[in-house]
C-alpha cells in the first residue's frame, strides 16, 4: 500500500461497498481529529476510475466536516473486492469487538463478495466469537435483512444474537408495528416484549400487527393521555398478562390475599419465584427489641387467621 496525502473531497463516499455500517455518531471523533489529526490513515482504492474508501469512512466524513484540506491515506492497489474488504474487517477487529448487527453486515458482504460459506463458517465466525456453524451464518444473513429502524435500536441497545434471531421470524409488517414500542423501552423489556408477542401470535395463529390492532392494544395506543413511554409500558404489561394469564391471575390473587390479611408495613410475605416452590418467605423489619416483640405478636395473630391458608396453598385460589 502506498502512503500519500489526499483532499477528503477527492474520495467518493457514495460507493459504500466496503463500509461496515455503524449507527454510532461521529461523537468524539471530530474533536479528536481537530486536536490530534488523523493518526490512523484511512485506506482508499480505485474502482471505475473513482477513488473510493476501503476503511475509515467516519474519519473521512469528520475531516470533511472540519474542512481539512488534506488528509493522510493509504492507497490500496487494485485488488478484488473480497480481499479489499478484509482490510476494514481486520482493522476494526484489532481495536474492538463487533456488535451482532455489524457481524451480520460483514457476513452478508463476505457472502456477496464470493467468500465460500465454509470459509465464513470456519474462519470468520470464530473471529467474531460465534459458533462455527452454517446455521449461524444463515441467521446472521437474515439479521442483515431486518429493517434499518430495528437494526438501529438493536445496535444501540446491544441486543444479543438470540433476540435478533427471534426478530428474523417476524415479517416486515410485524417489525414496523413493533418499532414504536420497542424504541421507548429498556433492553430487558425489549427482549421480553419481543419474546412474549412472538409466543402469543404463534399460539393464537395471528400476526403481531393483528394482535397490536386488537381492541385492548388499540385502546392503549389511542389513549392521548399517555406518553409514548407510558404506552410502551402498558403494552408491555398487557403482553405479559396475555402470555401468562393464569400466572397473572395467581399473582393478583396472592396480592389480594396479602391485602386481606391486613399485614402491617413491616411484615412482607414473599412467594417463591413463579410460585414454583411450596414455601413462602417472610420479611420482617424492626429497629428495636420492642418493635420485634410487637411484630412477633402480630405474626402469632396472623398465623391463627384462617385466610393464611390462601397464601400457603395457592391451589385454593382456584
Amino acid at each position: 500500500m502506498k502512503f500519500t496525502q489526499m483532499k477528503p473531497d477527492q474520495i467518493d463516499l457514495d460507493d459504500q461497498r466496503f463500509r461496515i455500517p455503524s449507527f454510532s455518531s461521529l461523537g468524539s471523533l471530530i474533536p479528536s481529529i481537530k486536536k490530534a489529526g488523523i493518526l490512523n490513515p484511512p485506506v482508499v482504492t480505485t474502482r471505475s476510475g473513482k477513488i473510493i474508501a476501503v476503511s475509515g469512512f467516519r474519519r473521512i466524513i469528520a475531516s470533511r466536516k472540519l474542512s481539512l484540506p488534506m488528509i493522510p491515506v493509504f492507497v490500496l492497489k487494485e485488488t478484488s473486492d473480497r480481499e479489499a474488504f478484509k482490510i476494514p474487517l481486520y482493522e476494526n477487529l484489532s481495536v474492538r469487538d463487533y456488535t451482532p448487527i455489524e457481524i451480520a453486515s460483514i457476513i452478508k458482504k463476505l457472502h456477496d463478495f464470493g467468500e465460500p460459506p465454509q470459509s465464513i463458517v470456519r474462519t470468520y465466525l470464530p473471529l467474531f466469537k460465534s459458533p462455527p456453524k452454517r446455521e449461524v451464518m444463515d441467521v446472521y444473513i437474515s439479521i442483515h435483512h431486518l429493517s434499518e429502524d430495528i437494526k438501529e435500536i438493536a445496535y444501540k441497545k446491544q441486543w444479543p444474537f438470540s433476540t435478533l434471531e427471534l426478530m428474523t421470524n417476524f415479517t416486515e409488517k410485524e417489525n414496523k408495528a413493533l418499532y414504536p414500542f420497542l424504541k421507548a423501552m429498556s433492553l430487558n423489556k425489549q427482549k421480553q416484549l419481543i419474546e412474549n408477542l412472538f409466543d402469543i401470535s404463534r399460539k393464537r395463529d395471528i400476526s403481531v400487527q393483528d394482535l397490536l390492532s386488537s381492541d385492548e392494544f388499540s385502546f392503549i395506543q389511542n389513549d392521548k393521555s399517555l406518553s409514548s413511554v407510558q404506552k410502551a409500558e402498558e403494552i408491555f404489561e398487557l403482553t405479559r398478562q396475555k402470555r401468562n394469564p393464569l400466572m397473572s391471575m395467581w399473582r393478583d390473587s396472592f396480592q389480594k390475599a396479602c391485602e386481606n390479611l391486613d399485614l402491617p408495613e413491616e411484615i412482607t410475605v414473599i412467594p417463591s419465584k413463579y410460585f414454583e416452590g411450596d414455601t413462602l418467605s417472610l420479611k420482617l423489619d424492626f429497629k428495636s427489641r420492642s418493635e420485634l416483640k410487637k411484630s412477633i405478636q402480630k405474626l402469632k395473630e396472623l398465623s391463627d387467621k384462617k385466610e393464611i391458608t390462601l397464601l400457603l396453598d395457592p391451589l385454593s385460589h382456584d
Partner: peptide, 16 residues
C-alpha cells in the same frame, strides 16, 4: 403454553 422458568432453569408448565 404457559410456562415458567423452573428451579432448575428449565421451562416447565406453571405449577397449577
Amino acid at each position: 403454553q404457559e410456562m415458567v422458568n423452573g428451579k432448575d432453569g428449565k421451562f416447565r408448565y406453571f405449577k397449577p
